[in-house]
Design a protein around this nucleic acid. Structure first.
Length: 566
RNA sequence: CGGGGUGUAGCUCAGUAUGGUUAGAGUACCUGGUUUGGGACCAGGGGGCCGAAGGUUCGAGUCCUUUCACCCCGACCA
C-alpha cells in the first residue's frame, strides 16, 4: 500500500477521554474510531490486525479438528426464554421487535443458538464428538463500557462449542482446546498465563481463563514462583502461610475487652498477631425467592473473598448488611464469634479448621474468648472463603504466590449438560437411552486481543506490533521525495517486497523526515527501511521499532536483510 | 444502577462567574513559496445552528427549565 493513498488518519492528540495506552494509541494511529459509547469502527489498519488474529485462530482450530460455522447475530428471544437466560442476562441483552412484533435479542454469546442448531440433527453417540466455532460480532449492553476495545458493547469474539457423549470425552476436548489456545497466544507473541478461574453462574467444575499479563489488566491473578500454578484471585487456593507467627499462651477464658472491636484493636489489646484472631464478615445471601444473613469467619489477617463466599452459600448474590439488621438478629457487631451463638448461618474458612489459640468474639458486648480450640466446632460448615495473600504458599508445591494483573482474553468452560438439558438437546447412547449432550465452551476475545497486544507492547512513541499481528511488516520511508534516486530505490524495493509477498507500506508522502518517522513509530511497523541521506554512499537504514535501533546496510543487501529479519 | 464531571471548528481547548460589536487560540485542512535526518517556516484562505428543545431579555455560548449524549469512580461483567 502507498501511504499517500492509504486511509490512516493519524493525529497528534488523543481523544480527551482515552486513558489506557491501547485506547490512546489505537485512536491516535488511526486504527479505531469511536461511534458511540462502547461502539467502535475499525479502520483499515485495525481490520488488517483483526484478520491476522482471526487467521491464526482459524488455523489452530482446524488443526484441532474444529469446524467453522456462522450463526445469525439476531437471535429469537424464545431461545433465551427456553434456557432461562433472558432473566439472568437482564439488561445486557439488547432486545427489539421486528415488524411482526416478534421479540429478538442481539447475540451476546451463542450457547442457545448452537445447541438449537445441533439438537435433532445430531441424534446418536456415533456422531459425537463435534466441535463447532465461529468468529463473530457480539453485543452486550454493558452498564459501563470503557477502555476502548478492552470493554466495548459490540466486540468480536471467537466462540466454540463442543458436544460429547461423556464427561471423559469433554475433558479430553477441554485439554485439547487449552493447548490450542496456548498455541494461538504464543503465535501472537503474547506473554500470558492460563489460570484457574471461577466458573461463575454458568456452573460446571472446570474453567480456565487466558490472561495476558499487563499492568492495566482488570483482573488480579496469583501465580506461583516455582511451578505452573496460576489462578484468578476469585478462585486462587493456597496451602498455608509461609511463616506462622508464634502462638500466644493463655488459658481458655472469657476476657473483658471493652471497646475492642476491630482486628487492629485486638492485636493491640492482646499483643497478638492477627493470625490468631478471628474476623466475622456478615453478608446477606440473596437467593431466588428469599435471603438470609450469613456470617463468614476468616482469620484476622485474611480478607473475605466475595466470589468464594457466594459460591460457598450457593446464593445468587451477596450484599452488605447494616449494623441495625445485625442487632435485630441479636448479633453484636465487633463481638461476633462462632461459639455459643445460633442467630445466623455460619461459614468458616477452612484455614480455621482445628485451629488453636484463637481469639474470637464472645457474642456479648465487651467480651472476647481467648485460646479457643476450633476442634470443638468440627461439625460446623467449613469452606474456602478467604482471599489468598501475596506470599501465601502455592497449593501444588512449596513455592510462594505473587500477584500480577492480567487481561482476560479467553475463558474456557466445562459446561456439562447445563444447556443441553435446559434445551432438551439429546442423543441416544449405546443402550438406546436418551442423554443430554455433555458440552464444553471456549471463548476468545478477538477485538480485546488487539487492545491486549498494545497494552503489552507499546512505548511513549506508540504501538509496537508483534510480527504476527502487525498490519504491515515493513514500512519503506522515502526521506525526501524530491530526490529521484531515493524514490527510485523506494519503488524498486516496494515492488520486490510485494512480489515476495511481504506486507509492505511505501511512505511516499511529501513530508519531512521527522514527521514520517513519528508517524511510523506511532503506527508501529516492526521494520522501517529509511531511504535518505546515506543513499549517496550506497547505504540505507533498517529501523527496528521494538528496539528503536537503526543499522546501516548497503542498498543492494537491504532486500535480503529484510527477508531474513521477518 | 448509585455518585461525580463534560458538551464551543475534524482534533485539543479558551471564552460562561458579572448577558452586549462579526465567537477565539493551537493543531489539522486548502493555495503559493521556501525547507527536507526527528511532528519546519512565511504569506493568504476555507471551516461553527456554541449538544438539542423551550423560556427570560431590547439582546443569550453566557441566565432559567427540560432533555440527550459522552466520560470518570463504584456496583455489575457466561
Amino acid at each position: 500500500m502507498r501511504r499517500s493513498r492509504a486511509f490512516i488518519p493519524t493525529t497528534k492528540e488523543a481523544p480527551s477521554d482515552a486513558s489506557l495506552a491501547s485506547h490512546i494509541y489505537l485512536s491516535r494511529a488511526g486504527f479505531i474510531s469511536q461511534v458511540a459509547s462502547g461502539l467502535y469502527s475499525y479502520m483499515p489498519l485495525a481490520k488488517r490486525v483483526i484478520k491476522k488474529i482471526e487467521n491464526i485462530i482459524n488455523e489452530e482450530m482446524v488443526k484441532a479438528g474444529a469446524e467453522e460455522v456462522e450463526l445469525s447475530f439476531v437471535t429469537p428471544a424464545s431461545l433465551w426464554q427456553e434456557s432461562g437466560r433472558i432473566e439472568k442476562f437482564g439488561k445486557e441483552l439488547l432486545r427489539f421487535c421486528d415488524r411482526k412484533e416478534n421479540l429478538f435479542v442481539l447475540g451476546p454469546t451463542h450457547e442457545e443458538m448452537m445447541v438449537d442448531m445441533v439438537r435433532n440433527r445430531v441424534t446418536s453417540y456415533k456422531q459425537l464428538p463435534i466441535n463447532l466455532y465461529q468468529i463473530k460480532t457480539k453485543f452486550r449492553d454493558e452498564a459501563r463500557p470503557r477502555f476502548g476495545l478492552m470493554r466495548g458493547r459490540e466486540f468480536i469474539m471467537k466462540d466454540g462449542y463442543s458436544f460429547h457423549s461423556s464427561v471423559a470425552d469433554m475433558d479430553r476436548e477441554f485439554d485439547a482446546m487449552e493447548a490450542a489456545y496456548k498455541t494461538i497466544l504464543t503465535r501472537l507473541g503474547l506473554d500470558f498465563r492460563i489460570v484457574e478461574a471461577d466458573s461463575g453462574a454458568i456452573g460446571g467444575n472446570g474453567s480456565k481463563e487466558l490472561m495476558v499479563i499487563a499492568g492495566s489488566g482488570e483482573d488480579t491473578i496469583a501465580v506461583c514462583s516455582k511451578c505452573e500454578y496460576g489462578a484468578n484471585v476469585e478462585a486462587a487456593k493456597r496451602s498455608g502461610r509461609a511463616a506462622i507467627p508464634e502462638a500466644p499462651v493463655a488459658e481458655f477464658n472469657k476476657f473483658k475487652t471493652p471497646n475492642v472491636k476491630s482486628i487492629e484493636d485486638l492485636e493491640d489489646f492482646f499483643k497478638v498477631d492477627g493470625y490468631y484472631t478471628m474476623k466475622c464478615v456478615a453478608k446477606r445471601a440473596v437467593y431466588e425467592d428469599d435471603s438470609e444473613v450469613v456470617l463468614f469467619f476468616v482469620r484476622g489477617c485474611d480478607t473475605l473473598q466475595e466470589v468464594k463466599a457466594q459460591n460457598a452459600t450457593g446464593a445468587l448474590d451477596i450484599v452488605d448488611v447494616s449494623e441495625e439488621e445485625l442487632r435485630e438478629l441479636g448479633l453484636i457487631p465487633g463481638f461476633i464469634g462462632p461459639l455459643e451463638q445460633g442467630c445466623a448461618k455460619h461459614v468458616i474458612d477452612t484455614d480455621l479448621r482445628d485451629a488453636k489459640s484463637i481469639i474470637c468474639g464472645a457474642n456479648e458486648e465487651g467480651y472476647h474468648f481467648v485460646n479457643v480450640d476450633m476442634s470443638v466446632m468440627s461439625e460446623a460448615y467449613y469452606a474456602d472463603i478467604a482471599a489468598v495473600n501475596e506470599g501465601d504458599c502455592c497449593p501444588h508445591c512449596n513455592g510462594t504466590l505473587t500477584f500480577t494483573k492480567g487481561i482476560e482474553v479467553g475463558h474456557i468452560f466445562k459446561l456439562g449438560t447445563t444447556y443441553s438439558a435446559a434445551l432438551k438437546a439429546e442423543f441416544l447412547d449405546e443402550n438406546g437411552k436418551a442423554q443430554p449432550f455433555v458440552m464444553g465452551t471456549y471463548g476468545m476475545g478477538v477485538s480485546r486481543l488487539v487492545a491486549a497486544v498494545i497494552e503489552q507492547h507499546h512505548d511513549e512513541q506508540g504501538c509496537i506490533w508483534t510480527k504476527a499481528t502487525a498490519p504491515y511488516m515493513v514500512n519503506i520511508m522515502i526521506s525526501n521525495i524530491k530526490e529521484d534516486s531515493q524514490v527510485e530505490l523506494g519503488e524498486e524495493l516496494y515492488a520486490k517486497l510485494q512480489a515476495a509477498h511481504v506486507e509492505v507500506m511505501l511512505d511516499d508522502r511529501k513530508e519531512r523526515f521527522g514527521f514520517k518517522m513519528n508517524d511510523a513509530e506511532l503506527i508501529g511497523f516492526p521494520y522501517t527501511i529509511i531511504i535518505g541521506k546515506e543513499l549517496e554512499n550506497g547505504l540505507v537504514q533498517i529501523f527496528e521499532r521494538k528496539t528503536k535501533e537503526s543499522t546501516s546496510v548497503s542498498k543492494d543487501d537491504v532486500f535480503s536483510k529484510i527477508i531474513d529479519l521477518i
